[in-house]
């Protein structure tokens, strides 16, 4: 396991460029969001779609672990825990680096879906589509 201070969230370089376009050009009206917030949103979208996209291309170091709040880190780790066998945690503990890697892959997929939406719909339409998506997800959350 790596030293905690070296752990970072990574995404693909081309994904990083897409983020700049999506957020910095105010296309979503949320240009004030921190990198970690942007990442968490993309991660959430990836999780909801249950899609992972391996970081096959050039990686870009996106956020250091120190810059991540306890709450966000907890969410990342909780998701990781939910995907692995309990006994592995009992026997080997929690592999933070692995948890972060997995988060990067989900966020990659999330950014992808966001990018295609942004390019094809207006801000309002994107928001309404997202609202519809999370409402449907919410309705079926306990199933």
């Amino acid at each position: 396991m790596s030293n905690n201070s070296d752990i970072r969230l990574y995404i693909e370089k081309k994904c990083r460029e897409a983020i700049d376009t999506i957020f910095n050009e105010k296309k979503l009206g949320l240009n004030h969001l921190e990198n970690i917030d942007r990442f968490m949103w993309a991660l959430a979208l990836g999780i909801m779609k249950e899609e992972k996209k391996p970081l096959t291309g050039a990686k870009d170091s996106f956020i250091r672990r120190e810059s991540i709040s306890t709450r966000n880190e907890s969410q990342i780790i909780a998701h990781y825990i939910s995907t692995i066998d309990e006994n592995v945690i009992i026997d080997q503990g929690i592999d933070i680096e692995e948890a972060f890697k997995q988060a990067g892959e989900y966020a990659n997929a999330g950014f992808d879906s966001l990018e295609s939406l942004i390019n094809n719909f207006s801000l309002e339409d994107v928001l309404l589509k997202k609202l519809q998506e999370i409402t449907e997800y919410y309705e079926n959350i306990d199933s």
């Binding site: 979503l28 009206g29 949320l30 969001l33 917030d37 968490m40 949103w41 991660l43 959430a44 979208l45 999780i47 909801m48 969410q75 780790i77 909780a78 998701h79 825990i81 939910s82 995907t83 309990e86 945690i89 801000l123 309002e124 928001l127 997202k130 609202l131 999370i134 997800y137 919410y138 959350i141």
Partner: peptide
């Protein structure tokens, strides 16, 4: 209002997306 909506969507997306994982982790 659209900004508010977007913030709401953002917060809710995170809560909803991590809901299952969080519950599972807490159970464990």
């Amino acid at each position: 209002i659209l900004k508010e909506l977007h913030r709401f969507i953002y917060d809710s997306t995170l809560k909803i997306a991590f809901y299952k994982a969080s519950r599972k982790s807490l159970k464990f």
